[in-house]
Nucleic acid binder design. Sequence first.
DNA 1: GTCTATAATTTGATAGAC
DNA 2: GTCTATCAAATTATAGAC
Lengths: 179, 179
Amino acid sequence: MSKKKDILKAALQLFTENGERATSTKSIASEAETSEALIFRHFGTKEKLLEEIIKNGYQESTKLISQFLHEENGLEYILKIVEVPRILVHAHPDFWKMQHKIIALNLLSQKHHDFFMKPCYDRLKIAFSELNYENPALEAKLLLIYIDGMWKHFASRQLDSKTETALTALVQQKYRAHN
Amino acid sequence: MSKKKDILKAALQLFTENGERATSTKSIASEAETSEALIFRHFGTKEKLLEEIIKNGYQESTKLISQFLHEENGLEYILKIVEVPRILVHAHPDFWKMQHKIIALNLLSQKHHDFFMKPCYDRLKIAFSELNYENPALEAKLLLIYIDGMWKHFASRQLDSKTETALTALVQQKYRAHN
DNA sequence: GTCTATAATTTGATAGAC
DNA sequence: GTCTATCAAATTATAGAC
């Protein structure tokens, strides 16, 4: 069991550096100080190894988010969802760094992310509706594009925590100021 | 010369579908209806082939943008830069689709994009300063994150043109409404 | 669970002819 | 400029022993 975790850890690191395609099972085995054969015994294929990493990542992130996003009124929900990128990336920086690198090219990665984000769109439409925005659906779409840009930015660059907080607060301020 | 263009076109298409790493020179040759050897005669390596595609893309995009973004006052510049994602992706959808897929993993792609975007940050700081925003540097950073999210969104999904226009107009409206 | 050895393919790239 | 033929290395995955 120890070796299995070593493999998962090594794979996460190498997938983050070079993506799935440019990471050989040989390099994973080497980094995990084990044999290539063991990777295939445990995970079957390189792709299934990646899938396990992705599943673990979204499972933990889902837990985190469902604790954080409770049922509140429209404005509170919007203000909280703006904080999600910072919270996610801080909780699992390695995982979200990997996701940022591979999501555009990897269908599996995309599917899991879409599933993870889907509830937010519906809830945001209601929130903007409550707050009498002119076009709630468009506002929801726009905020989600922003959220997307934000976690990718936080995951890819090492911003100091202060800048991340300031950016988050700035967006919140804009939504607070509405009418 | 005809074959060289065929190769560039085929490579752009296949890099967009699967990224550089998962695209073999064999498949490029097959798609371009030529021989693998010719790829290496014309471009030296697969990486240099990609580099030529990237250089061409940014060269044309730079022309386009420098025509579009003239020296105007702060608010006008902000309103115009918000339209940049739509303009770029509409002018060269294939190229920007490829960029979206590979930029997170490809250092060359990143470097060219950073160089392309760099002037905007400085100009935006001045613009927000002119308009008496409280924290011009932070506002500039935020808008650039938004711009980034937007071209990636436009490039990756096939939105109808109306939704793209509506999203762009919505952001412009928010900056117009300031104070 | 873990290893060594190896099979079967694919890959990027080159040589040399036309 | 373009092709055919070919190579050396790397890659995913399996067999079989401990």
